[in-house]
Write a protein that binds this DNA or RNA. Structure first.
Length: 292
DNA sequence: CGTTGAACCTGTTTGC
DNA sequence: TGCAAACAGGTTCAAC
């Protein structure tokens, strides 16, 4: 569920109940997806939550040190595929697969739920925090057209693979990659270096618009994404490509198709998003580079 | 550099 | 109806 718009929606909803609160007790369930569960239990109690922000698909909770010696700087949470955070009264029933409880000084508690445990959670000092976040690429909502073009220039990977690569752009996942490519009328398997300047510009605009609209709709709820208040998002109602295999394209009525690109289901319109040259065919047609 | 497939773990949907 | 296979919004790693 969680790509940039879903994480942003969750973060916005968590700020009010969390910022300024002090964490009093940490209780953990299964910990095999956590970086250092012992440190979490040891260093987090006593800290106050100063800030809740999003960095790509990561949620960063800045903590004030509980003691002078504490190196705790930030609680990092990645939702993986099925992670979720919610603030609940301590007496609310505990939903299945809840693996972390952070009791707050107002009697409520922050709970982390994740059935598949593909998520990630850990308490990090400043240096360790940067080590995790620094490799990530630009925020897709802030990158300039020029920088975007530079990130794609001369890359021979498929455009979809690059959009999903968090070192290139941070926050785009499978849904929004497909939606953006549909908008820009670019086939997911096109090699990035083969895109025209016009196409790169169109894709840059498409990504920004799709993500902004998705945030306005409070994300996509395909099966189970919920915001901090437990409400589903509505952007799934506006999907134009993702999940629409066999259904008519909103522009040309051709049937949306599904193929595998970069190992992921990729939905596109075979008419609006033209198939690239078969791998190896065109570039090699002028073969015989015997002469130079 | 790039691609592919598998792995991590559980739940849900699809197909026979 | 029942059971097995396929599939799922993410990331990482080995092998080629």
């Amino acid at each position: 569920m969680p790509e940039l718009p879903e994480v942003e929606t969750l973060v916005r909803g968590l700020r009010r109940p969390l910022v300024g609160r002090r964490i009093t007790v940490v209780r953990l369930g299964k910990t095999d997806f956590m970086d250092d569960p012992a440190a979490l239990q040891r260093d987090v109690p006593g800290c106050r939550i100063e800030e809740v922000t999003r960095h790509g698909k990561f949620i960063v909770m800045r903590l004030s040190p509980s003691k002078a010696s504490s190196a705790a700087a930030g609680l990092l949470v990645h939702l993986g595929m099925t992670g979720h955070l919610a603030v609940a009264s301590a007496d609310e029933p505990i939903v299945n697969h809840t693996h972390a409880f952070f009791a707050l000084d107002d009697g409520r508690e922050l709970r982390y739920t994740d059935s598949r445990r593909f998520g990630r959670m850990g308490i990090f000092g400043e240096v360790a925090l940067q080590k995790v976040l620094a490799p990530l690429g630009h925020d897709p909502l802030e990158i300039s057209r020029r920088d975007f073009a530079l990130r794609l220039a001369r890359r021979r990977a498929r455009i979809k693979a690059l959009l999903l690569d968090q070192r290139v752009l941070r926050g785009v996942g499978n849904i929004y990659a497909d939606e953006s490519l549909w908008r820009a009328r670019i086939h997911p398997a096109r090699l990035a270096a083969s895109l025209t300047a016009k196409q790169v510009a169109a894709l840059h605009v498409a990504i920004g618009e799709v993500l902004k609209q998705a945030i306005e709709s409070r994300g996509s709820s395909i099966s189970n994404f919920r915001d901090a208040q437990g409400q589903p998002g509505e952007y799934q109602l506006r999907h134009r490509a993702y999940g629409r295999e066999g259904k008519p394209c909103f522009r040309c009525r051709s049937n949306i198709r599904r193929i595998l690109v970069a190992g992921r289901s990729s939905f596109f319109c075979p008419r609006c998003q033209r198939t690239p040259r078969a791998p190896g065919s065109a570039g090699r047609s002028a073969k015989k580079k015997t002469k130079h």
